[in-house]
Design a protein around this nucleic acid. Structure first.
Lengths: 147, 147
DNA sequence: GCTTGACCTGGAGTGAACTCCAGATAATAA
DNA sequence: TTATTATCTGGAGTTCACTCCAGGTCAAGC
């Protein structure tokens, strides 16, 4: 498979594919006699994994270390496990940050939709009406900068 | 509150605090007669929000646009709502990417822990034993590059 | 008043992850 | 064979989000 076909299949540039290889994020891709890249089944697997890692926000360098360890053979299995667990922790923390921000966003969007409907944007809770607001206990969020 | 105190409270550098202000990510902070930053309740609220957005991975520019709209008054409420909903979508997509990667990682870690215990790293499913593997239906993931 | 340390601004520098480019080589169509 | 198109490499350029620096002001203690 040519680099063009791979770039089209995954929707990334040829430059990015070459960059991933240069940076060690994927192992060296097979070549034709003339020195042109010819992606095989396995190369595609690495590319797909690289994309998955990157789109989850994991760093190129971590993947490069992992690939390097893989190429060094079975002796590096414990190191690889440690690396995988580190990345896992990173992702779980990131997921939590996103969850926190989403909660703020959801609250704010609720208020803004209300504002667009009623023409009034307010951060005050209705004086006596309880219920309806699953978001936060009253008196916690009140202003613009709270998003 | 001085910039030093704020930087200590939130664990970020003074330079970053100034940068957030310069980039419009937070509105201009109040100053003393001599021109020195004096963070009030409201300034702290903006800082906290900025940190929340950044740690969730949202771009500085999006926050700067939001702040700009806020400063322009109520006429921008529909624009702000649109912006908030865009960021929400971004975060939800990012969360999904993380979830996908976490699933791959968990599978791999399971295999690697097995390998460390038994001394053998394998991607083959045990021939006839069903059960135990909630991860993927058999024959789906098999190799190193699958992480 | 003078020294010392915190803070100011504008601008340059850094690291990560691409992205673009020039000049050369390879493959393909006429 | 020749023209055209695709791919190669090494290296420079770009964007984002800081981070550092120089040279200057401000404030507190002596």
């Amino acid at each position: 498979m040519t680099i063009k076909e791979v770039s089209e299949r995954y929707g990334i540039s040829q430059d990015t594919l070459r960059y991933y290889e240069r940076s060690g994020m994927i192992p060296a891709v097979g070549r034709t006699a003339g020195g042109i890249r010819d992606y095989g089944e396995e190369d595609l697997g690495w590319v797909e994994l690289a994309l998955c890692m990157r789109s989850a926000g994991l760093p190129v360098e971590a993947m490069a270390r992992y690939v390097e360890l893989c190429l060094q053979g079975d002796a590096t299995i414990p190191d690889r496990l440690r690396l995988l667990m580190d990345q896992r922790r990173t992702l779980i923390e990131q997921e939590e940050q996103i969850r926190v921000m989403l909660k703020r966003l959801d609250y704010k969007i609720f208020r803004y939709e209300e504002a667009v409907r009623t023409g009034k944007l307010t951060w005050e809770e209705p004086e006596k009406e309880d219920g309806l607001m699953e978001f936060e206990s009253k008196q916690e969020r009140k202003r613009e900068y709270d998003l």
